[in-house]
Amino acid sequence: MSEDERDEERDAADAGAGAGARTPADASGLSGLSDRDLAVLDVERRGWPGPGAKERAIREQLEMSPTRYYQLLNALLDDRRALEHDPMTVNRLRRRREAQRARR
């Protein structure tokens, strides 16, 4: 799914939620995830143009090393709150993780 398609889905979901829709800034209260956890999931949800762009964004936007980012991401994949918040992304990453484990 392209980034534009994901944006359209989010816009449609926001429109369907009505005036009481939560913004990403206050979504952490709803899901129980921290703002940092939500930011990590958001980075994984996006498409990246090439190698290095994602790592650069991790350092600049999240102000953490890629190693720490992947540690947090791996923990989030086992967190039911992350699954409830963004099931498509979490399930996609879980499948990728299992495939990597199976190759080892």
Rank of each mutant, 00 (worst) to 15 (best):
M1Y: 03
S2G: 15
S2A: 03
E3P: 06
E3T: 13
D4I: 10
D4Q: 15
D4G: 06
E5Q: 13
R6K: 15
D7S: 12
D7E: 14
E8G: 04
E8I: 08
E9H: 07
R10G: 00
R10P: 00
D11A: 15
D11W: 08
A12H: 09
A15M: 11
G16S: 09
G16C: 04
A17Q: 10
A17I: 05
A19T: 11
A21Y: 01
R22V: 11
T23S: 15
T23N: 09
P24D: 07
A25R: 15
D26P: 01
D26Q: 05
A27E: 15
S28E: 13
S31M: 00
G32Y: 08
G32A: 11
S34A: 09
S34G: 15
S34P: 09
D35H: 08
D35L: 08
D37V: 06
L38N: 06
L38W: 08
L38V: 03
V40I: 14
V40L: 08
D42S: 12
R46I: 03
R46T: 07
P49D: 13
P49W: 04
P51Y: 06
G52L: 04
G52D: 08
A53V: 11
K54L: 10
E55N: 10
R56D: 11
A57N: 08
A57V: 12
I58D: 09
R59S: 13
E60A: 11
E60T: 12
Q61I: 11
E63G: 00
M64N: 07
M64V: 10
M64I: 13
M64W: 05
P66F: 09
R68C: 11
R68A: 15
Q71C: 10
L72C: 09
L72F: 02
L73S: 09
N74D: 15
L77F: 09
R81P: 06
A82L: 07
L83Q: 10
E84S: 10
M88K: 09
T89D: 04
R92V: 00
R92F: 01
R94P: 01
R97L: 07
E98Y: 09
A99Y: 00
Q100A: 15
Q100K: 14
Q100I: 09
A102G: 01
A102T: 09
R103K: 10
R103W: 01
